[in-house]
């Protein structure tokens, strides 16, 4: 797809642009966290009864948490953890899912059968319990978190890539390349991958959002990296350390809204990209109404004249 066309149709899609902007803001916050955050998250705070769950004030715009730390600072640095886990985990998923999808779609036959059956089985097994089991057995920490979320999140990608590969494989230029004796790896690299890649990117955006949701959930359940304060971790502390009974809504609401912000942004962006790469002709047979007849005002015919005359006469 030519560059110009891509941006044109992308910008025509308002939801996608909104999603892109939402995501860009989140990424910027994560990158420039030290510049934006009002405090250093690593300074130790001397905890007194006054600065535990203190409500929003001029010093702490979003109040403080159970350890007397600034919620806004935590929120800004939390973006880093969520986004890093999201991006790296989805990278693992993409590599696994992309490879399995490409191989299954390209080679077909028994290879495809085995790989897709495996994908289907993993799709049926509930995600979160398996994640919990893996973390319970492997231990906690960011690398493990990234690893387990990554190796369980590839099923969707594999399916998308496989079906796209199947359709690309039948195209003329692939058959021609094969006819002139090009090797399988060459064909996959030069002909198939470039056409499958855009769809993988679209899929990646959605995989990232799922990974971020998974990270928050695990962290909330107390299975996150205890040394890094992600948004899920903030909510875990708030939930288990009395924010509810203290009425400290300021430590409950902002991390959740932050998660929604990023996930919603990614979802909108993903849908927008999908519409650009995979435009669907929108037909709606029931959306037809009277507006279909849009001809200029008619010359009044004999029937209408009679009717008008009658009304006037009465």
């Amino acid at each position: 797809m030519p560059q110009n066309n891509f941006w044109q149709s992308f910008f025509r899609n308002r939801m996608g642009v909104i999603g892109f902007v939402m995501l860009a803001i989140a990424v910027a916050v994560a990158i420039f966290a030290p510049l934006i955050a009002p405090y250093d998250p690593n300074t130790t705070v001397r905890v007194t009864i006054d600065n535990i769950y203190s409500p929003p004030s001029a010093q702490n715009w979003l109040g403080t948490d159970d350890a007397g730390k600034d919620v806004l600072t935590n929120l800004i640095y939390g973006a880093r953890v969520s986004l890093i886990v999201g991006f790296f985990a989805s990278f693992i998923s993409l590599v696994i899912g992309g490879t399995i999808g490409l191989v299954a779609g390209f080679y077909g036959g028994r290879v495809e059968n085995v790989l897709m059956r495996l994908t289907d089985i993993l799709l049926v097994i509930p995600d979160l319990p398996l994640l919990i089991v893996l973390i319970a057995l492997l231990g906690r920490g960011m690398p493990i978190l990234i690893f387990v979320i990554g190796i369980l999140g590839w099923t969707g990608t594999a399916r998308v890539v496989r079906s796209q590969t199947l359709s690309v494989r039948e195209r003329k230029f692939v058959q021609r390349a094969r006819a002139i004796g090009a090797g399988n790896l060459y064909i996959i690299r030069r002909h198939i991958f470039p056409l499958v890649f855009p769809l993988m990117l679209v899929n990646a955006v959605l995989v990232i959002s799922a990974a971020i949701l998974n990270e928050s959930t695990l962290a909330f359940l107390g299975l996150g990296d205890p040394t890094r304060l992600s948004w899920g971790q903030m909510l875990n502390f708030a939930f288990s350390r009395g924010a509810m009974s203290a009425g400290a809504w300021w430590s409950l609401v902002p991390p959740g809204l932050a998660i929604i912000w990023v996930v919603l942004g990614l979802t909108l962006l993903g849908n927008g990209l999908e519409r650009v790469f995979n435009p669907r002709l929108e037909m709606h047979h029931l959306a037809i109404g009277d507006e279909m007849v849009a001809r200029p005002p008619q010359v009044v015919g004999p029937v209408a004249v009679a009717a008008v005359g009658k009304t006037v006469g009465e």
Binding site: M283, H284, D290, V293, R295
Partner: peptide
């Protein structure tokens, strides 16, 4: 039959069916 897809507009003309213009009928 006035079944055009949503983008279709009948911009001119008459469809006289048994003497009545179908384009004058309501949906």
């Amino acid at each position: 039959m006035r079944l055009l897809p949503a983008a279709g507009r009948i911009v001119n003309g008459e469809i006289n069916f048994l003497g009545a213009d179908l384009l004058n009928l309501n949906e």
